[in-house]
Design a protein around this nucleic acid. Structure first.
Length: 483
RNA sequence: GGGGCCAUCGUCUAGGGGUUAGGACGUCGCCCUUUCACGGCGAUAACACGGGUUCGAAUCCCGUUGGCCCUACCA
């Protein structure tokens, strides 16, 4: 019986929730779910100047929206509340633990006070650079045994020789010569612990079995490994996942269309589509041991992803995020989901348009039809865009289409449309066809004229659906000005 | 400068000594069509470079180039 699987996502609340972070969180989540383990959300808010409660909310909301539920961590909405036996889950609230561990290291002589001032250090660093040497702290305070009467930074004693080996689940074995690492600072002069120290202490305290994080932390890991050992801890498994890049191979940012998870929500993507796309970015699910061999097989459910997820299969190289692929996945999901599964997500689009109430007021049948006749759209935003005309009459009419379709010949037919009474799909179709036959029109001629009257342009769902959605009264009202 | 990591179509990838180097997105073309779309069919395109090892290298080894990370009393 091996140790229970515990993973954690530990963002710092310094701004938006980046899609790269979400992917890392997704891998943690997938792995924990796969092994019936625990997924923890921990807030690394030791950067006092940049961390805010609002930013913590942004993280919580982003995680909730994208569907990554955490077993332990903060409870959304209440800055001090949390669930789980290892809390609190905000580092600022865990200072006592850090201090105790630092004292322990000091007592054992595994760490020491360093009175070298920042200025001195900077100077020595500059000098080294000038001579083309790399600067490493020379450990001159190691055996000074300074007492605590003068504020001092605290450094961890690092081995002088040998190699430090990191067995990484995704990168493989990484060997770093100890000589390239110096005695690093675990606590600042003001007593606050540094990041590399807190993570280790927290990960151990929280029982994290698999440290899954961005590969920008690879180089920190050897330092942390020494700390694990100094503290007498067993090493967790490490998995450093590569970054996500934009089209230009630079770090993904808003310049690339979207980088923040909330932008993807606003753009009309389904959380499930974001999850699938992100999971498949840098990892190929192998259901029954086989990678997808057709478009159909690319579309996996969370259950399928969970069933075959493995940290060891994650790609080593960074990957470029492709919005087109997300869009395609999103469209496929819209196509195959039931309208009731789409509707909750569509609400956000209505809210952004100030139409949430108008939408909510509609009947289920109406909503089913509205969503049903838009199964060919790529995003929820598009669905809302093409449906918005139902809630408000057009204010302007496109010149070209008006000239082309609102001909004198078509107007009598329009008038006949107004007289149609049965709006059931088949009856409506029969009624329209009769009108067409009478005037010798093609459906296209009439349909486009109707669209102009209904929407001001030439784009709408299929015309019979459009009329059913509008209802007889509204159809008449919008046709009246044209006859 | 030092240490580390990485490298298959435009993009995400499969493959890991012998394959016509497979799939997906995109792009292009054709078909369908009641607008916008969807859909169907087809096409396009890749092993960074140079040396080894080997009967044989996209696959193994070394080097080069390029990209990225770390090198903070940031996280």
């Amino acid at each position: 019986m091996s140790k229970p699987v515990v993973t954690r996502f530990a963002p710092s609340p310094t701004g938006m929730l980046h899609i790269g972070g979400v992917r890392t969180a997704l891998f943690c989540w997938l792995y924990a779910r796969r092994h019936n383990g625990t997924f923890i959300l921990r807030v690394e808010d030791t950067d006092l100047t940049r961390s805010t409660d609002d930013n913590i909310r942004i993280i919580e909301e982003g995680m909730e929206w994208v569907g990554l539920d955490w077993d332990e961590g903060p409870i959304p909405g209440d800055a001090n509340a949390y669930r789980g036996p290892h809390g609190p889950y905000r580092q600022m609230l865990r200072m006592d633990l850090y201090r105790a561990k630092i004292a322990e290291l000091l007592d054992k002589g595994l760490a020491y006070r360093c009175r070298c001032s920042r200025e001195e250090l900077d100077e020595r660093r500059k000098e080294a650079e000038k001579e083309g040497r790399s600067f490493l702290y020379d450990g001159r305070c190691r055996d000074k045994h300074w007492d605590a009467t003068v504020p001092a930074a605290i450094r961890l004693r690092m081995p002088d020789a040998g190699d430090i080996v990191l067995e990484d689940l995704v990168k493989g074995t990484i060997t770093v010569p100890a000589s390239s690492l110096d005695d690093w600072i675990i606590a600042r002069q003001d007593g606050t612990p540094t990041y590399n120290f807190c993570v280790v202490v927290d990960d151990v305290d929280m029982g994290v079995s698999h440290v899954v994080r961005g590969d920008d932390h690879v180089a920190n890991t050897p330092k942390q490994i020494v700390l694990y050992k100094a503290l007498g801890y067993d090493l967790p498994a490490f998995a450093h996942v590569p970054m996500i890049l934009g089209k230009d191979k630079q770090k993904l940012s808003k310049r690339h269309g979207a980088a923040s998870i909330t932008e993807f929500r606003d753009l009309g993507f389904l959380p499930a589509a974001v999850r699938l796309t992100l999971a498949k970015l840098g990892w190929t699910p192998k259901l029954d041991g086989k990678a997808a061999e057709s478009a159909e097989e690319e579309l996996l459910t969370d259950e399928q992803l969970t069933a075959c997820f493995d940290l060891g299969e994650i790609q080593k190289a960074a990957a470029v995020f492709d919005l087109d692929k997300l869009t395609w996945v999103n469209q496929k999901l819209i196509q195959r989901l039931d309208w009731t599964e789409i509707e909750p997500h569509l609400r956000w689009q209505w809210r952004m348009r100030g139409l949430e109430e108008a939408w909510t007021a509609k009947s289920d049948d109406w909503k089913a039809l509205a969503i049903g006749c838009n199964k060919n759209r790529t995003t929820l935003k598009e669905i809302a865009d093409t449906l918005a005309f139902l809630f408000k009459r057009p204010e302007t009419f496109e010149e070209g289409p008006v000239a082309k379709f609102m001909t004198a010949a078509v107007k009598p037919a329009l008038k006949e449309v107004m007289e149609l009474e049965d709006y059931g799909h088949d009856a409506l179709k029969a009624g329209i066809e009769a009108i067409l036959a009478r005037h010798g029109f093609k459906l296209k001629d009439l349909a486009q004229a109707l669209r102009v009257a209904f929407t001001g342009g030439v784009v709408s769902p299929p015309i019979f659906d459009t009329m059913a959605l509008l209802g007889r009264d509204e159809v008449s009202a919008r046709l009246l000005p044209w006859i």
